[in-house]
């Protein structure tokens, strides 16, 4: 059987402007965790955040708390489904959404300004510090934002919204320096 190839929805979607760089994120394992998932720490090796908009984890694995009973775990290091729950966790708490989302890293001193082209949230450092995350709206697409540093964000959306979201990110990047 021929080896089956992956086609990434964000392939080739990079862009640079003064003060902002957009680069496509590599494929990642993504799991949506719901409900009571206390034991999840044993698999991922870290605790889940306890407040909405907070994240935990590092070294390429982030757990984002998006709702009172909802976490998005993004692991950029492991391959598909490694993070799907094993015997320690009730299986029904997790759904594999690795291929549902795609994303970009938006970085540079004007990254925050670039996102302001379509995101109505206050993303200033004092309101949205490093490690903050949120599901929000970017123009007409729903996105998940994660601030990975003072000048860097991970932006994720559902895959079919990638052309739109990348298009609007580009608009934001080219206008940020004006």
């Amino acid at each position: 059987m021929a080896k089956t190839a992956r086609a990434l929805p964000n392939e080739g979607q990079d862009f640079a402007a003064t003060g902002v760089t957009i680069t496509p994120c590599q494929p990642a394992t993504r799991v949506s965790l719901r409900g009571k998932v206390a034991n999840y720490a044993r698999i991922a090796g870290f605790k889940l955040p306890g407040e909405i908009n907070e994240t935990t984890g590092d070294k390429g694995c982030h757990a984002l708390m998006l709702g009172p009973d909802e976490w998005l775990v993004i692991n950029t290091k492991k391959t598909d489904a490694d993070l799907m729950p094993g015997p320690n966790v009730k299986a029904y708490t997790a759904t594999d959404i690795s291929h549902r989302n795609t994303g970009w890293t938006v970085s540079g001193p004007l990254a925050e300004t670039a996102l302001a082209v379509g995101c109505p949230r206050d993303l200033r450092l004092e309101a949205f510090p490093v490690g903050a995350c949120a599901r929000t709206i970017f123009g007409k697409a729903e996105v998940v934002l994660l601030r990975t540093s003072k000048t860097s964000f991970r932006v994720e959306c559902w895959r079919s919204f990638a052309p739109y979201t990348f298009g609007l990110l580009k608009e934001g990047a080219r206008d940020a320096a004006l």
Binding site: G139, K140, A141, S160, F161, P163, Y164, L168
Partner: peptide
């Protein structure tokens, strides 16, 4: 604003669209 042409509204395409 930016909401014209391809950015007027998201046009969603399937993985098999190409």
């Amino acid at each position: 604003g930016n909401a014209k042409g391809a950015l007027f509204d998201p046009e969603r395409r399937t993985p098999i669209d190409a």
